[in-house]
Design a binder for these strands. Structure first.
Lengths: 111, 111
DNA sequence: TTGTTAATTAACGGTTGTGCTAAATAAATG
DNA sequence: CATTTATTTAGCACAACCGTTAATTAACAA
């Protein structure tokens, strides 16, 4: 189990956050396909991927000469769980969550 | 509007995370009352509070010679909103969320 | 106004993070 | 087998982060 602070540290960098968002929205991608998230060198991207991987935010699988990365659901869920554990503080009532849930049930569209 | 990466950066430090958790769980506290979250000097705590404040994670109000700090609901909500915006990725179905919500409705206890 | 308490700011040093270029590794291709 | 492509590792520089002690600011109390 990685600490939540490590997860936050991994997501605290704009480039890494952009990488994770890309993986969340577009699905698994190779290192090369993630190169355009920021105007930095390939080695810099590679190191960001390493940081994310070591924090457990993304997973890696090797496919030939490519390394395919994907977001780790558990990491995002851990963050969500933390906010939920304090939900009564930041959310006055249940209306908003209930409404969102209801919309999903009927709507069933994606983000 | 603060960027989410700034919020994550603020919460990426163990001491700052502990401060925020204390404020979330125990409510508003003065700087002095937060001193015991970590075995570090008062100036160190003070600077962490400044980082959290500048990131919009906590609010400060002055009361005589004390500075009273409190968690900013909007910051936590922003994190929650982000996870929710990607919920379909990390949450296979709605069962878990629906269950948690249902428990809250009847139970209504806190964390 | 003198002293005490609460908290911050200033100045310094050590560690960590992030970028670069160059080099290395490993698979795919001719 | 030589070359190209994909990606990482190595080594270096610079900026940011975090802790400390000393000094400062502000409110409170005698």
């Amino acid at each position: 189990m990685t600490r939540l602070t490590d997860t936050f540290a991994a997501l605290a960098d704009e480039t890494r956050f952009a990488i994770v968002e890309r993986l969340l929205e577009a699905g698994a991608r190779s290192a090369g396909e993630l190169a355009d998230v920021a105007p930095i060198s390939a080695p810099a991207i590679s190191r960001h991927l390493k940081v994310l991987r070591e924090a457990g935010v993304i997973d890696q699988r090797v496919q030939g000469s490519r390394r395919i990365y994907s977001a780790n659901p558990a990491a995002i869920r851990a963050i969500s769980d933390w906010t939920v554990s304090h939900r009564t503080f930041w959310e006055g009532g249940l209306e908003r969550l209930a409404k969102a849930l209801k919309e999903e049930e009927t709507d069933n569209g994606n983000a």
